[in-house]
Design a protein around this nucleic acid. Structure first.
Lengths: 215, 215, 215, 215
DNA sequence: GATGAATGAGTATTCATTCAT
DNA sequence: AATGAATGAATACTCATTCAT
């Protein structure tokens, strides 16, 4: 309250605006949340702006006060999904970056990934839907992720921790593609394979051309 | 004479049927070809039945003389794509199956795959579009491919040519995902990486848990 | 062959034409029969010319060699239905016309009607479908029937066998409407009411203003 | 003040809702009215949803904001027609129900019916179109009416006011069929027969087996 | 005379988006 | 800022009818 009173003292209009802005943000947040839910279930095409507004319990016109169009929400949602994922992976990897323990790093990465998939089965659907239109939109997302991985790889190579036989860009794409396919396959029915076997297999595949050199 | 007249009646009818049937098949083929072209460019949703008919230079109603609906053509096209791909891969692999030379086999597989992508850039777009709706349709396609790979793997393991640490089902999904992503990325712009580097990298990644055991 | 040679002797072209004409008429008859079947089941709108041709086992274009359009077959079929019905009724009534036994005549009429409905449940559907379009077509049919009844009535009145209180034209319409409704209702499920009760009731209603005068 | 502000908030919202709702209802009413007009003229099949929207001077999509499909409007219109008719008849009959004056009741009924036909020539076309598809929809309507009449009849019989020789269900169907045919015939051209002759004839026919027994 | 592939206008229905309140 | 009725272009699919063979 001290903060808010500070603000109100500053300008008579500030708080009102603040209230309105807060409400606006709440509405926007509800729309985003509804979008997540629905896109995860039905994909970009399977959802109408009316659906989203209805789910968010606002009028259909309200949607357009917050987003230019349907693609924009999808974009935003997809972007935030990637951010979450990247952050999640980074958190898992950072301890191992310093120790340069590549196998441990890759393993932690796979573990984080699988954990993320478990916690956010819905986001997996959104992240890895390589929908032709989502491609125009969000596939850039996978590309970004791939680039991140490629970059990491280049660094490893430059410091001599990985062999040079693999093209980093290709590896990045390959890893992302692998993740996308495996995780969406697994998310559909997690009983298909045990969590541990999944992590182990992903780790093994990705270790190729990495640990071997180190070993 | 009765016999000959029978024959002449048959002969009278045969060609008619044949001509009509031929024309029908030609039209159908043009529709399929147009579908290929357009689906590759714009995806399942980005194409209308009118587009396909127009591209095939037939009236829009004609489409429905040959297909029940848009999904049916897509299905058919996608199915034939997979068949082509599988055949292409099989051809490349078969010589090495007998010699049990796994590294050579994997390499040949990667080479065939890249060759296929070069020759059929359009099909790649169709094959590997994990479109949410195409999923309901053709994604079963990727699943089928993945299962084929998993099956191959199980065989290798059973004859002791591959280690058991990797789950075959997961490996199958992973390989397919990798192919899908890498090939569609590369197809967009083949100058991104040399043909050879691409093959080499795909080979290396997939050799994991295969050649190592052998070595 | 002896017969055909006879004909061929008469005129070289005659038999051929005759054969062709016979075949043509057979095709036409099959189309009409198919139309009857299908119109009875699905109504004018529920049937396509393709359906009719298919049912008749001829090509769809053949339909147009025999009829100008769909309405024309319907017309023809409906007309022949009315003719059959009228003939059927006339046969039943004629014995009583001479004896001037009106109640017996009306009863015989009702009996004939119900018998007709039993034998031709399908035709009932066609005859009495007051479809808006069938109206433009076949409703004239009911009108014709109504006019016949009105005419009969006028005659009865003129010879003093019926009272004058009822307008013949209205009576004609009323009787036809009654028949149409009752028979199509009954045709749907003849267990609704016994044959005898049905005849009795129809007779009673129609006797109004007829037998009463006589009685 | 908090209370008044609550109210003002409510007041702020109430009118908006009201205005929108009023406008919505007005549009819906226009659509229904247009449907009445057009269905009366052209029947269920002769009218498209575009026609209705156009006639109502709204965009074609607007139709679907108010009705699920064409059949739904037709249903609604037809239902309301029957309600109006039944109410009209009931009003005319009720005074005579108590006096048990059957001839007067039947006469009043016929009078009401003819009056209704005069006032609502369009509704007659809708009510009594035994269209094959309208049958799937609204013909149930005629059936309902017939059942009402049958029920009335059973009551009359049970209190001894009508003879038992006629099957009530058949009578119901017969009366409805008679009305349908006569009224639509007369509506087309009311100069065909005088209003009085029409009423008299309908009355006479229906009196059969009713008043006679009493008399 | 028969065939059957092709036509293309017609129709129901959906949905992203706008705008007056 | 929010509402929600209205818009109208877009699209899948049907079917009476034609015509080259």
């Amino acid at each position: 309250m001290s903060v808010s009173s500070d603000k109100s003292t500053a300008a008579e209009k500030q708080p009102r605006v603040s209230v309105a802005a807060r409400s606006r943000q709440a509405t926007r947040a509800r729309l985003v949340e509804s979008g997540r839910l629905l896109f995860a279930k039905n994909g970009l095409h399977g959802v109408t702006t009316h659906d989203i507004a209805h789910q968010a319990e606002v009028a259909s016109g309200t949607f357009y006060l917050h987003f230019k169009n349907k693609v924009e929400v999808f974009q935003e949602i997809a972007d935030s999904c990637v951010s979450e994922l990247i952050e999640c992976i980074d958190n898992a990897c950072s301890p191992h970056r310093e120790t340069k323990d590549i196998p441990a790093l890759i393993h932690a990465q796979a573990e984080a990934l699988v954990g993320f998939a478990e916690d956010h089965r819905d986001l997996i659907r959104i992240l890895f839907s390589a929908d032709a239109d989502a491609a125009a939109v969000g596939s850039g997302i996978l590309r970004a992720l791939a680039e991140t991985i490629a970059e990491d790889r280049r660094e490893l190579v430059s410091v001599g921790l990985a062999q040079n036989g693999l093209d980093p860009a290709v590896l990045g794409q390959a890893v992302v593609g692998m993740w996308a396919q495996v995780l969406s396959w697994w998310s559909e029915d997690p009983t298909r394979v045990s969590r541990e076997a999944l992590i182990e297999t992903l780790t093994q595949i990705q270790l190729t051309g990495t640990s071997r050199v180190v070993a």
